[in-house]
Amino acid sequence: MRTSVRRVAVTLAAVLPGLAVVAGIQAATFPEKPITLVVHASAGGGSDIFARTLAAAFEKEKILPQPIVVENKPGGSGAIAFAYVGGKKNDPYFLLTAVTSFLTTPILRKSQVEYKDFTPIANFAFDEYMVIVKADSKYKSMKDIVSDAKASPKKLTVGGTQLGSSDSICAYLIEKAAEIQLNYVVFNSGGEVNAALMGGHIDIAVANPGEALELSKANKVRTLGVFSEKRLVGAPDVPTLKEQGLDAIYVQNRGLVAPGGIPGDARKVLEQAMLKYTKTDIYKKYIKENMLSEAWMDGPTFGKWLDAENARYHEVLKAMGLLK
């Protein structure tokens, strides 16, 4: 009985003119199997936490009929994950975490895939950045840093991760806005940068608000400014760099993309699901605890934002002398 009904439906679908109907049926059933969310970094990092929180919320709230499975493909500042997901053309069962490196790695590395080879799904939030110094440092504001750096160029040490990373761009933006020169020291991870700062081995560091504020509450570091347009809701006492006369604004986005050429309806389903996820308690708690700024963008808006940012990164990285 059932098979005959299906057979009739199949025949009808085949006979009916136009592919739109077939596409409609497909979209109604997407996703039919678990979706793989590829994380471009190793387990335990910011993107990994983002992905695993998202996957857990999807499972708990049953946002999609199929689960999202997280898979780490770390390496090469994201290059391995980008090549992997970029190679899954037209397959809507893959998602990829997209942060700063999603744009900067292809710019710096002449990789075969670039951001245009992906379908933007959504952007969720921005990571903010703060300038910190040791609690007993002689620098009380950005002005102190600027005047000292002007007096002795390349003397002040600023710690951060690999050149081309968000930290290094933040440091460069200060140099450019204040017309000073700093001595940038490369560390392996944010944790090592903070340790070196607290130990007095470097003068300045760039940190995310979560860690910066916790260390500042314990009176280990002092926060001098934040790289945002306006003061952060969670940290109303920390002035922006802009208030202090430095035109240095920077955020890192947290978004998701899918391989290029996926069916439009699947993209829509994913985008809707992501929007629904941003309304959950798990997501709200994630944003609050990691001190992120919510910044929802749907696929097309995110795509335009990526275009603009890509052009800006090109410019900044070139000015930093990292592009030949």
């Binding site: 335990g44 936490i49 860690e211 916790e214 260390l215 605890e289």
Partner: peptide, 16 residues
């Protein structure tokens, strides 16, 4: 480092 991530997920911020 992974444990640190886990602490954050559980709403604990490791620090002094």
């Amino acid at each position: 480092a992974v444990l640190l991530g886990a602490l954050l997920i559980h709403g604990l911020r490791p620090g002094p």
